[in-house]
Amino acid sequence: MMNSVLKVENLSISFGGLKAVDDLSFEIGDKMIYGLIGPNGAGKTTVFNCITKFYTPNSGKVTFKTNTGELINLLDHSVHQIINYGLARTFQNVELINDLSIIDNLLIGAHSQFKTSTLQQAFLTPRARREEKEHRGRAMDILNQLGLADKANEIAGSQPYGVLKNVELARTLMSRPKLIIIDEPAAGLNETETEALAEMIKKIRDYYHCAILMVEHDMGLVMGTCERICAINFGKKLAEGTPDEIKQNKEVQEAYLGKDDDDAEN
């Protein structure tokens, strides 16, 4: 039985001859907050996209412990199935549906939880009504927990960026995840917002009992919240360890030397 929720082994992917991720391995423990760091273009987001099957890696294995405790290789599944097993993600550029209300956006996050058919929904059968009510209730609970309840019926497109980032986080919780993958949560946030975010990430882990994997440039946030960190460069692992170990690591320091940490990775 594996103690970790996610185990990445020998992951490699290349685009047109360029190795974006090169034989990368790391492991995330249950309910752990884990950071993936690296300079611009190090391949961090690519790793995310491989794990969530937006890209298909050339080789490697991604073992995931599902909600039911079963071990599966995520690479054997298609992109829309990943969330069913308990792995939800956010995007670097916030992918919410702008025309829908915030609570409806959360309900999209619960998509994999809906069991009634389109036909049942069309005829508003008791089951369909009950299901809708149940998930609406859950969505309100989550919004309450994250302090967003007053915005439930606002249209997403009308909200400031900082709120949307939180909504996107809230949306991942609708799927009852075991692991949340967060892509650059602090990008575009100011310092106060970043501090609030750090609190929220810890709170999510404690309250919803899930592990969190984040890619982040803001070293303050990573060092302050993550229990373990993996540093990569040119798709290769430089070092892995606790925040202190990473800070001390020569290779990591070199990789970052002279780099501007605040630039968003494209």
Partner: peptide, 15 residues
Amino acid sequence: VAMKKSEHAAQAMGV
């Protein structure tokens, strides 16, 4: 609607 507005988000949400 999710699919029409953002295929990536829709897929990540299990659509």
